[in-house]
Design a protein around this nucleic acid. Structure first.
Length: 382
RNA sequence: GGGGAGGUGGCGGAGCGGUCAAUCGCAGCAGACUGUAAAUCUGCCGUCCUAGUGGCUACGGAGGUUCGAACCCUCCCCUCCCCA
């Protein structure tokens, strides 16, 4: 039921199609982040209209509230949130990194203290797998240990090797769940795919070791984790391209947590098929908007009487109906409509960018597109 | 007419002899944000500049006391409340 087909390429850039139990995803794809079962400020209808084919949910956050068993009782995450299309769930591995201050680590797993009420939760590879099986996402991620930048070689190696051991445990557990041999865990998506995650910090030999070991375990797809954690963009590109080369050509490659519009184009150019990032949604709520001519901060006084659209080349609802002056006013006034309109625009810009990337690969004009895109993004919005 | 309270930076509101260009909040200006503890956070916010343990002007107005005043005294101006 789950499959990935490479339909074309232009250099390392690939055009593909991801078949999931809940529909098809064209790649290269950008996946909006909906941590708690909602892409902040968006309705599903608007996401579909903007062209989102798959969105993310988060194991850690959904475990804390409302709970994986409650969601399972409602028939799984798709039915619970009313999103019939593909869903990917992150494992909580990123929270091991981002919530480092309130978690303790052992090889067994990560012991979290809930940021909501202090309750302790032990998130093990098995538990992360079970939770995602109950959620029934189309793609589940293995539990991994992501580390920051800079990191010593020893720290990167330790986190990478633990991630490999955990990947193996996650895979075994999923196979057990599929076989129906794990009591109390009934999957709400019989054809759930599982992706492994390559770690290794900025050390290429560690990345190579991680890729080889993760591929040896065997997954439906492979992710590159632990990037965009503070390293310079060039270093991120270098690690991404070298790691992507070590992954099987017939499986999707997912670069986790990346990135800026420029990052997306540059990483597609290096063989990446899937991305997710909070930047378009979070920055929209904070007033930073991505346009075809670069970024603008709608809070700036210079837009107070600007009657033009946010991005004259954008066809989203926000750009068709509202002026920069109005958007600035809504933001300054603290109206929640500002967050909604801004998020709709940023996601439309990201998803349009992915569409243009796919077209460029299909027409084998990707390199030209890439150069023009990067130039346009750096001109600076008026 | 009598009694009382009070006038501080764009606004609200601290301060009540030196460490006050003046706490704090709001507003304003700018910046950050990359598998979301984020509709969050940071910086600036009298004025001038070479931007600093810098200069200047400042706490209703005018005088005064003091080494030193937003803070004490005198007079004036103005607000608000109560009683007539």
């Amino acid at each position: 039921m789950f499959s990935f087909t490479v339909r074309g390429s232009d250099g390392p850039a690939r055009l593909g199609e991801l078949q999931t139990p809940h529909g098809v995803v064209q790649t290269p794809a950008f996946m909006p982040v909906g941590t708690r079962g909602a892409v902040k400020a968006m309705r599903h209808r608007e996401l579909e209209d903007a062209g989102a084919e798959i969105i993310l949910g988060n194991t850690y956050h959904l475990l804390l509230r409302p709970g994986d068993e409650l969601i399972a009782r409602r028939g799984g995450l798709h039915r619970f949130i009313g999103w019939p299309r593909p869903l990917l769930t992150d494992s909580g591995g990123f929270q091991i990194y981002s919530l480092a201050a309130r978690r303790a680590m052992t090889d067994e797993g990560a012991d979290f203290q809930s940021h909501l009420d202090g309750t302790r939760y032990l998130l093990t590879p098995e538990r992360a797998t079970d939770i995602q099986a109950r959620l029934g996402s189309d793609i589940a991620m293995v539990l991994d240990e992501c580390i920051g930048y800079p990191a010593t070689r020893d720290a990167a190696a330790a986190a990478m090797r633990r991630s490999v051991r955990w990947a193996d445990r996650c895979r075994r557990r999923l196979l057990d769940v599929r076989a129906g041999s794990v009591p109390d865990v009934s999957a709400t998506n019989a054809d759930q795919a599982q992706f492994g995650i390559v770690q290794g910090g900025m050390f290429q030999d560690l990345r190579d070791e991680s890729a080889a070991a993760t591929v040896a375990v065997g997954f439906e797809g492979y992710a590159i984790g632990g990037l965009s954690v503070g390293e310079p963009a060039d270093q991120m590109y270098a690690v991404a391209v070298d790691t992507a080369r070590r992954l099987p050509a017939e499986r999707p490659r997912y670069l986790m947590g990346v990135g800026t519009p420029e990052n997306l184009v540059e990483c597609v150019a290096r063989g990446i098929d899937m991305f997710d990032c909070v930047l378009p949604t979070r920055n929209a709520r904070n007033g930073q908007l991505f346009t075809s001519q670069g970024r603008i901060n709608i809070k700036n006084a210079r837009y107070a009487e600007d009657d033009g659209p946010l991005d004259p080349q954008c066809g989203c609802y926000t750009c068709r109906h509202h002026s920069r002056a109005y958007l600035r006013h809504l933001f300054q006034a603290g109206e929640m409509t500002a967050g909604a309109l801004n998020t709709l625009h940023n996601l439309t810009f990201y998803l349009d960018t992915m569409r243009r990337i796919r077209d460029a690969i299909a027409f084998r004009t990707f390199e030209t597109f890439r150069q023009e895109f990067l130039r346009a993004m750096s001109t600076g919005a008026p």
